[in-house]
């Protein structure tokens, strides 16, 4: 299968700069995947293949790295990836209730994506924000000191954003 995707020129420039920062090409794989993720939106088979070909690394190696880390956006992840912290502090402050409220509102369990493709729900380990427990991370943003009302409000806001984006 020929690859039809490629980095935009701006990303390519960043990639070339990255290569100068690492002793070997392979060492630059993690940040290059980050670039790919932001350029392509997610890391699926064609994206991983593109990065492998670009960097002259076996595709299997790239696949192994992408699946090793949980912070890469793998293909099939919803537009909004809601990651609820479920480690000690958050758990004591009611992260389970946060998860069940989201499940109730969106109809998905942790590890699932809504059929519309807008939301993915995950339970994750400590996100390093114990002082503001319970908290969740949605894409790159933290939402802290959550009450169940905050959760409802967040979901409404995200839903509006997703649907708005679709219409626009």
């Amino acid at each position: 299968m020929a690859n039809t995707i490629s980095f935009c020129s701006e990303t390519m420039k960043q990639y070339e700069w990255l290569l100068t920062r690492y002793p070997t090409r392979r060492a630059a794989l993690l940040p290059t995947l980050r670039l790919a993720e932001s350029d392509f939106g997610e890391l699926g088979v064609p994206e991983m293949r593109y990065v492998a070909d670009l960097m002259e690394i076996p595709p299997a190696f790239v696949f192994g790295v992408v699946t090793f880390y949980t912070h890469y956006r793998r293909a099939g992840t919803g537009k909004f990836h809601i990651q609820v912290c479920s480690t000690l502090s958050c758990a004591l402050r009611g992260s389970e209730d946060v998860v069940s409220r989201i499940t109730e509102r969106l109809g998905i369990k942790p590890g699932e994506t809504t059929p519309c493709g807008h939301f993915t729900l995950s339970k994750v380990e400590c996100l390093g924000s114990c002082d503001t427990a319970p908290m969740l991370q949605c894409n790159d943003d933290y939402h802290e000191d959550l009450s169940l009302e905050d959760v409802d409000q967040l979901i409404e806001q995200l839903r509006a954003e997703a649907e708005g984006g679709q219409n626009g």
Binding site: R49, A52, P59, F61, F63
Partner: peptide, 27 residues
């Protein structure tokens, strides 16, 4: 596959107790 055949088709996917040998999809 990396050192003897030089074809590198195999990798470990996932991590911890979920890690297992796999190939890149469709290779």
């Amino acid at each position: 596959c990396d050192e003897i055949s030089g074809t590198s088709e195999l990798c470990i996917v996932e991590r911890g107790d979920r890690s297992v040998v796999d190939v890149f999809p469709e290779i």
